[in-house]
Amino acid sequence: MEEEFRALLERVWGQLGSPSEVRAYQGVLDLLRDHRPAEHREDLARILVEPGRPLWAREIAAYALGVRGDRRAFEPLVMLLNYRDPVSCACAARALARLRDPRTARAAAALATNELRTAYALYPIRLLTELRAPESVPALLSTLNRLLAAPDHYWPIARACVEGLGVLGDRSAVESLNAARRHERLRPAADEALAQLSGTATQNVRPTSSA
């Protein structure tokens, strides 16, 4: 079982407050067993749309369908990717990466660049890095450049952009990474990213003063 999904199940178990909720939880888990995969997949898909289902049940069903490549999970997973709970976001990102839906990169880019949701952009950014899609570099550059110019830099989000640009290895990021070096809290990640782009940590990098 993947770490993200285990964390989700542990969180859900800790929130159950009644015997009926425990029975419902066990019932959803029973659907994850593969001895009747086709039938169970349909049951999981129904959980996504049935009225009255708790969010945790939809989360588990969406993850299970996503990692099996069932595109009915796409919209719930995108919603969870930008959710306020990091465990939900991590699970959604893992499932979307496995789902391989062609809409995923565009959706992740829209979430990563949404100025109103910057605080929740970490997992969309990480997913874009993993996908290596055409949308990945433009979205990371747009977000990083905006954060470098903003009064509130959202350091973890900016750092994720820097790290992702290093992994993606596109030299169009050099100027933005040099700008990131001007901020002490981003400089180590920016140096590493530039090293990944150029082969040496200091190539084409001018000394800068601390911000």
Rank of each mutant, 00 (worst) to 15 (best):
M1L: 14
M1N: 10
M1H: 13
E3S: 12
E4S: 15
A7W: 08
L9W: 04
L16S: 11
P19L: 15
P19G: 13
V22F: 12
A24H: 14
Q26L: 15
L31E: 12
L31F: 14
D34M: 13
R36K: 13
P37L: 13
P37N: 12
A38R: 14
E39H: 07
E42V: 04
E42W: 09
D43P: 05
L44Q: 11
A45C: 09
I47E: 05
I47D: 10
I47N: 08
L48Q: 08
P54L: 08
W56R: 13
R58E: 06
R58Y: 07
A61N: 03
G66V: 06
V67F: 01
R68I: 03
R68T: 00
R72C: 01
L77S: 01
V78D: 07
V78F: 04
M79Y: 09
N82S: 14
N82I: 07
Y83H: 13
C89Q: 15
C89D: 10
C89S: 10
A90F: 09
A93E: 12
A97K: 12
R98T: 03
R98D: 08
P102N: 00
A107I: 05
A108H: 11
L111R: 05
L111I: 02
T113K: 02
T118V: 01
A119R: 10
A121Q: 04
R126N: 11
L127V: 01
L127R: 00
L131Y: 00
R132T: 05
S136A: 10
P138H: 08
L140D: 07
L140W: 09
L141S: 02
S142M: 02
S142W: 08
T143Q: 04
T143L: 00
T143W: 03
R146C: 00
R146A: 07
L148P: 00
A149K: 10
A149T: 03
P151L: 10
D152E: 14
Y154F: 14
P156E: 11
P156A: 09
I157A: 10
A158L: 12
C161A: 10
C161Q: 09
V162T: 09
G164H: 06
V167F: 11
L168G: 08
R171S: 14
R171E: 13
R171L: 11
L177Q: 00
L177S: 01
L177W: 08
A180F: 12
A180D: 03
A180C: 05
R181L: 14
R181M: 12
H183M: 11
H183G: 03
L186T: 05
R187N: 06
P188S: 01
P188G: 05
A189W: 10
A189H: 09
A189R: 01
D191V: 11
D191Y: 05
E192W: 04
E192Y: 02
Q196D: 02
T200C: 02
T200D: 12
V205W: 04
R206G: 01
S210H: 01
A211Y: 02
